[in-house]
Simulated assay, not measured.
Amino acid sequence: MASMIELRDTLALQGRMEAQQLSHVLHTPQPMIEAMLLRLEAMGKAKRVTDDVSDCLSGSCKSCPEGKACVREWWVLQS
């Protein structure tokens, strides 16, 4: 199980990652990673970045039945 310091260090080395990627790399359950990321966000150490849906090539994101499931959420360290 990873600590918040390991999570922060991994984000620092990789630049930006999704919670699922962090979970895989750190061998920690994704709900735990998401809780730690939310805590880092509350402390002002990390921030959530989402892809702009206007960049969708097919234009189908606006009418996506999954509710914009194709929008990816990345985490980066706050500078």
Rank of each mutant, 00 (worst) to 15 (best):
A35S: 09
A35Q: 09
A35I: 08
A35H: 07
A35G: 05
M36A: 02
M36Y: 07
M36T: 02
M36V: 04
L37I: 02
L37Q: 00
L38E: 10
L38D: 12
L38C: 04
L38Q: 09
R39D: 02
L40N: 02
L40Y: 05
E41D: 06
E41S: 11
E41L: 09
E41A: 11
E41T: 07
A42D: 08
A42K: 13
M43K: 10
M43Q: 07
G44K: 06
K45E: 01
K45V: 04
A46E: 00
A46C: 03
R48S: 07
V49I: 15
V49A: 08
T50R: 08
D51L: 09
D51F: 04
D51T: 11
D52I: 03
D52W: 01
V53T: 11
V53D: 15
S54R: 10
S54Q: 14
D55H: 09
D55P: 00
C56V: 12
C56E: 07
L57H: 13
L57R: 15
L57D: 04
S58E: 13
S58T: 10
S58Y: 11
S58A: 14
S58F: 11
S58V: 06
G59Y: 07
S60L: 14
S60W: 09
S60M: 13
S60G: 08
S60C: 11
C61E: 08
C61L: 13
C61F: 07
C61K: 03
C61R: 04
K62P: 01
K62W: 14
S63V: 11
C64W: 01
C64K: 05
C64D: 13
P65W: 07
P65G: 09
P65R: 14
E66V: 13
E66F: 13
G67K: 05
G67E: 01
G67I: 05
A69T: 10
